[in-house]
Every structure is written in structure tokens, then in C-alpha cells.
């Protein structure tokens, strides 16, 4: 019993150390500017304030960045998950020439570094006159999100018993009807999981946004908030921490309500192959 208690305490100390930066982020965002520089620092804010959040929302471009990020991530997720669901159905349940090669290509691109693709993509999008638009980012995000989503959905799809589809065919459904009536409802948890991962991936992306977009109207949160750091003459840490917290809100929501989908996606992803 004693040993269990000691073990628990030690484990929780380590866990809290790992979580400390996130705790510190929240605490800093709630402190008044003056309290940031007090020595010794206060671990819990002496006075709680939401002034930084107010400033962030009303006096900076944060809301516009936030809106861009939402549009961008939702668009990418919808396009990618839609295309990948059909693609995964085809890869798992149909036989045609080149299917194996295609599966190999998917895995290959899943591992491909963005910096290799970004240069020609930049060139391509500039020539198409699409640079500096949210749409160009959706195109660019597809390069990593589509292989990822395909790979995830492929293993989710493989987990659905083939007999169910066969039964639907015998019962008189066409392939697409069987897909709609029987496979899609079974695949739904996998689709949610994949959509969640795709959304998070797009939400967090930095490099493409940095290269392809450089006006405040189209910037997503990642480059937008980073710009707030670089462009300000004297760094307002509490404002940046408030921005960081706000940026993580969708994640916190996902964590609170959809954690099982997150862990499921992990299992289906690269690790289990």
C-alpha cells in the first residue's frame, strides 16, 4: 500500500512536470502585465484578469486569423475526408490493375517531407495566380492530409467485415447502395476519427502558410500569431499566451468530448500499419 502511494506520487510529479508548460501558458494569460515581471513569480495569479483576451479579440487581427483557420481547416477536412472515404473503399474492396502500386504510393507520400513539395507547389500556385489565397492553402494541405486520411481510412475500412457488404449485395443492393446502407454507418467512427486528425493537422500547419500566404486577410492562426510575436516591438507575453490558449480551444473541445476517437485514430494510423 505504501509502495503504491509513493509510486503514484512520483508518477504524478512527472506528469505534472510534463504538463507544466501548458499550465504556465494558462496562468500567464490570466495575469495582469505587471504581475508577469514580479520576483519571485506567482504560481497562481494574484489577480485574475481577462484583459488580454479582450485585447486579443478586439484590438488585434486574431479573430480574422481564427476565421481563416476555421475556413481553411474545415474546407481541407471536408475535401480530404470525402475523397479519401471513396478512395479507401475502392482500395480495400475493389480489384483493378494498379491497386497495389497505388497503395504503395499512398504510404510513400504519407512519409514525404513537405519541404520537397513546397518549392514546386509554390511555383505552381504563383503561376496559377492563386498565391495569397486560402484556396491555395487548401490545395497545399491536401498534399499531406490526403495520404494521411487515406491511410487511416484504409485500415478502418479493412476492419469492417466483408460479409456484411456481401450480404447487402445478395439482399439486392448495388455496390454503392451497399456502401451507403451498410458500410458508411459502420465506418462512421473511423470517419470522425480521421476528420478530427485532418482538422488538427490543418489547424496546426505552419510551413505552407508561411510560404504561400503573406497578407493579414488570408493568414491562418499559426503564421498570424507568430507574426504578432515578430512584429511587436516589445513582446507582450500574456497576450501571446492568451492567443496560444485560444488557438488550442478546438483541441481542448476535441479532448473533452472526442478523446476515444483520437486514440482510435492513433491505433489505425502508422503504428499498426
Amino acid at each position: 500500500m505504501m509502495r503504491r502511494t509513493v509510486f503514484n506520487i512520483c508518477a504524478w510529479i512527472v506528469i505534472l512536470i510534463v504538463a507544466f508548460p501548458l499550465f504556465w501558458m494558462v496562468v500567464t494569460s490570466l495575469k495582469p502585465q505587471s504581475e508577469l515581471f514580479s520576483r519571485p513569480p506567482t504560481f497562481l495569479p494574484a489577480t485574475l484578469t481577462l484583459e488580454h483576451y479582450a485585447k486579443l479579440l478586439w484590438e488585434t487581427n486574431f479573430l480574422s486569423y481564427f476565421r481563416n483557420s476555421i475556413i481553411l481547416s474545415v474546407m481541407t477536412t471536408v475535401v480530404v475526408v470525402g475523397v479519401a472515404t471513396l478512395g479507401a473503399f475502392s482500395l480495400v474492396r475493389f480489384k483493378f490493375r494498379g491497386r497495389e502500386t497505388l497503395a504503395f504510393l499512398v504510404l510513400f507520400t504519407y512519409l514525404l517531407p513537405s519541404v520537397v513539395l513546397i518549392l514546386p507547389l509554390y511555383l505552381m500556385l504563383v503561376r496559377l495566380g492563386l498565391s495569397n489565397t486560402i484556396f491555395s492553402l487548401v490545395i497545399a494541405y491536401t498534399t499531406f492530409a490526403l495520404p494521411y486520411a487515406l491511410w487511416l481510412l484504409r485500415s478502418f475500412m479493412a476492419g469492417i467485415p466483408e460479409d456484411i457488404e456481401s450480404a447487402a449485395l445478395v439482399d439486392g443492393a448495388s455496390r454503392m447502395e451497399a456502401f451507403r446502407d451498410v458500410i458508411l454507418p459502420q465506418l462512421l467512427p473511423g470517419i470522425i476519427s480521421t476528420a478530427l486528425f485532418t482538422f488538427i493537422l490543418s489547424w496546426n500547419e505552419y510551413l505552407y502558410a508561411l510560404v504561400l500566404v503573406n497578407s493579414d486577410d488570408t493568414r491562418p492562426l499559426t503564421t498570424g500569431v507568430m507574426n504578432m510575436l515578430i512584429s511587436s516591438f516589445n513582446i507582450e507575453w500574456s497576450l501571446l499566451m492568451a492567443a496560444s490558449v485560444m488557438m488550442s480551444v478546438p483541441l481542448i473541445i476535441a479532448f473533452a468530448f472526442l478523446q476515444s476517437y483520437l486514440t482510435r485514430g492513433f491505433g489505425a494510423g502508422g503504428v499498426k500499419g
Binding site: P161, D163, I164, A167, A168, V170, V182, P185, Q186
Partner: peptide
Amino acid sequence: AMVFQSYALYPH
């Protein structure tokens, strides 16, 4: 009509 070994009932 076919009866499958796994029954293949539609779970949902």
C-alpha cells in the same frame, strides 16, 4: 438468398 457463416447481420 444467402446465410453467412458469420451471419453478417447489419450491426446498426
